[in-house]
Design a protein around this nucleic acid. Structure first.
Lengths: 224, 224
DNA sequence: CTAAATGTAGGCCATGCGGTCGAAAAACAT
DNA sequence: ATGTTTTTCGACCGCATGGCCTACATTTAG
């Protein structure tokens, strides 16, 4: 059983008894919950309904999770982790910051295209961070790292002489913003935007916006 | 009294008896509801809580609105109308498509900065469109017009020879996406992004991305 | 084989919700 | 003043939800 009212204040941090079936069930529940949320909205995704989707009893969820809140928290974590893992692997395969930046954008859109439910659910969940504090916390633990990743690419590119002189932090926010903004429209209506075209437009635009007019410094970068 | 169960199927379409106090109350309720939603989240913004914020009884809301759904609908309408009116007026003051485009972006950010609650509430509400159909409807009636506006500017600019050759629809989606994406980060954490800097970065980027390398055709456009 | 643990089911409950109702109050017309 | 209409109030209802509890099933350990 998952730890609930342990003497210490710690919540479900005890991942000790990770029975195979335990973790499997958790993943299964998280998966079905994402599907349910994406299909019916977070508000309609009650424990009963999620349980229905999985084909189990409601209390099974209560057994494996400390409550609805923890389930949603885990969903968020899972969604972000899955996306980030994919993007980072793609970026790392490239050498040279311009290529890495392009890979970041393209990977973001590629992952979207194949995991629509993830993002529909994500947008639904975004609206559930009631307090400003919760919003800030989410931003700090989940959103900011993405910007930092871009920022590091940009900064490195500047050092290499591939990129012109700009404020890495601001441009990183702008780039991530553009990606998420297009994603948002696509979540509202799949047919409203063409992901591939937007991706192409964005990569071209960011290339233009970051390129160093003086050309690169050392070896990397051919100014393609 | 607002029409509720009129013989005909029409809902609250009878805006006939727009008593001064009636419309005043509605605006008041909408305002307070936005504040409540922005402060506590849509889920926590129950009729009781909103009524508390206004300082009236719960049933007053039920009296002036046909239900919670209609209230939220009106909130969405009000939020978008307010924002669009501001942006459009700014755009129309400019002559020349490059200037209009810049005005669109700058006005978007300027309005944000002065109406944070509006956007926090908006993001919360975004997550409440349960079904895919509701999402599509929102996109069609509220979101798409914004893109169309940008699109018309871009298309006109191409005709004038101020802009290069691109797909107006796609670039419009990209521009609106970039604005909303940055807005989203700012909603999560006010301190996470610098709106003014992002606005500057975006205007510069879009200018670069739209400019016609061959220069303008007729009179308008100085290639500043 | 048996006993302890782990996992599951279904019913139960307190809570808070949106919405309704009739009476009271306020605004208005005459 | 008086009657009429518009607006407000507080109590109330039915309902869905998240969480809890007890009993039952299944797996694991000795």
């Amino acid at each position: 059983m998952r730890s609930k009212n342990m003497p210490d204040g710690r919540k479900s941090s005890g991942r000790k008894k990770s029975t195979f079936i335990e973790e499997a069930r958790r993943r299964q529940i998280v998966r079905s919950a994402i599907t349910t949320i994406a299909g019916a909205g977070l508000a309609q995704a009650s424990l009963a309904r999620i349980a229905d989707e999985v084909g189990i009893s409601k209390s099974v969820i209560s057994y494996h999770f400390d409550g609805r809140d923890e389930l949603i928290e885990e969903i968020v974590t899972a969604l972000l982790a899955e996306s980030n893992r994919f993007i980072r692997s793609r970026v790392e395969q490239e050498s040279g910051c311009p290529a890495k930046l392009r890979a970041y954008v393209e990977a973001s859109f590629a992952f979207m295209a194949g995991h629509r439910d993830n993002f529909v659910a994500m947008v639904d969940i975004w609206g559930s961070f009631g307090t400003a504090e919760a919003k800030r916390a989410f931003n700090a633990t989940a959103y900011d790292p993405c910007r930092r990743h871009i920022e590091s690419i940009l900064r490195k590119g500047q050092q290499d002489g591939d990129f012109r002189d700009f404020t890495p932090r601001t441009l990183a926010a702008t780039i991530q913003g553009a990606i998420d903004g297009v994603m948002l429209q696509w979540v509202f209506d799949e047919a409203a935007v063409d992901l591939a075209e937007c991706a192409a437009e964005l990569t071209a635009m960011f290339d233009l916006a970051t390129r160093n007019p003086a050309g690169p410094d050392p070896v990397t970068g051919d100014g393609r």
